[in-house]
């Protein structure tokens, strides 16, 4: 690709991109403009501008406590899924054993099945054990796709670490603790960081599972936002929009951080590890 001739096909492609971006821009722009609007009906732009909707949504939706819950849930999910997922990926990457394919399939299924399908039985089980509606229930539900996701990201990552490094460390007399702490851990940190951030983004954005298992005190930001929209009429539209903007801004910050650590083209190695490949 040293020379690119401007063929009609090129124009069509870039035209489609431009249209998509204008469309998305219009969608986002509408919400942002409306969240600053005093009143906006049948005109191009609102009658006047104000920032009071942000203040109102901060107090009316009890945003501080919703944000706290979101933070607690995502940090717990990230920590637990890394603690359980990374050792499992190590075993999957380094060992061949009978039943490995079945186990890999078990770890992949939660990602291939839509959340609502297993979310409804899961919520029923959580209600049975009186965990639904609590923070613990929300964390447990969000672990279901997160642990397999960590395994999916980390297994290829560990596979590409040369096992001879561990062998060399052992030969030089390092006990298991030192091999893990001083040889493997530093090598694993970049992968764990990437997996952790991706799980964080997914958990903050995960609507279905949280919606099915959360109670009034354990709503995350997405779910609170959904309730405020579906209960339309009670709240001013602008106030809902203000909250949606807050949500998107926090997601955007997370994604930009994630893209600094994760090269999107790394995704391919995860996907190619699926069974049958």
């Amino acid at each position: 690709m040293t020379r690119t001739a401007w063929r009609p096909g090129t124009w069509v492609v870039w035209g489609t991109v431009a249209f998509f971006l204008i469309f998305v821009g219009g969608v986002v722009g509408s919400v942002v403009v409306n969240s600053f609007a005093v009143r906006w009906f049948d005109t191009w732009l609102p009658d006047g501008w104000t920032t009071r909707w942000y203040g109102a949504s901060w107090s009316d939706f009890d945003l501080p406590s919703v944000l706290l819950v979101t933070f607690q849930v995502s940090v717990l999910v990230v920590a637990i899924s890394l603690l359980t997922g990374v050792p499992a990926s190590y075993a999957l990457a380094r060992r061949e054993f009978p039943g490995k394919r079945a186990l890999t399939l078990l770890f992949l299924l939660p990602i291939m099945i839509p959340p609502v399908t297993y979310g409804i039985p899961l919520a029923t089980v959580l209600y049975k054990f009186h965990l639904a509606g609590t923070l613990a229930g929300v964390v447990l539900a969000n672990l279901v796709p997160s642990i397999p996701f960590v395994i999916l990201v980390m297994t290829p990552f560990i596979e590409q670490i040369d096992p001879r490094i561990e062998a060399a460390a052992r030969m030089c007399g390092a006990p298991t603790r030192a091999v893990l702490g001083r040889v493997l851990a530093p090598l694993l940190v970049p992968g764990m960081l990437a997996a952790g951030i991706l799980v964080l983004v997914r958990t903050v954005g995960m609507f279905e599972l949280t919606f099915l298992t959360a109670g009034p005190d354990s709503e995350t930001l997405v779910v609170a936002l959904y309730y405020s929209v579906s209960a339309a009429g009670i709240r001013a539209q602008q106030q809902v929009d203000a909250m949606a903007v807050v949500y998107t801004m926090s997601m955007l910050v997370l994604l930009v951080i994630a893209l600094r650590f994760v090269n999107p083209t790394q995704l391919v190695t995860q996907i190619k590890e699926r069974p049958g490949t």
Partner: peptide, 23 residues
């Protein structure tokens, strides 16, 4: 360009829905 194209992932269902309703 890749980043710009990926941004809609962050929009989330509710903002997309609200935006579509308005836009």
């Amino acid at each position: 360009l890749t980043t710009v194209l990926v941004v809609p992932i962050t929009l989330g269902t509710v903002l997309t829905a609200e935006g579509l309703l308005t836009f």
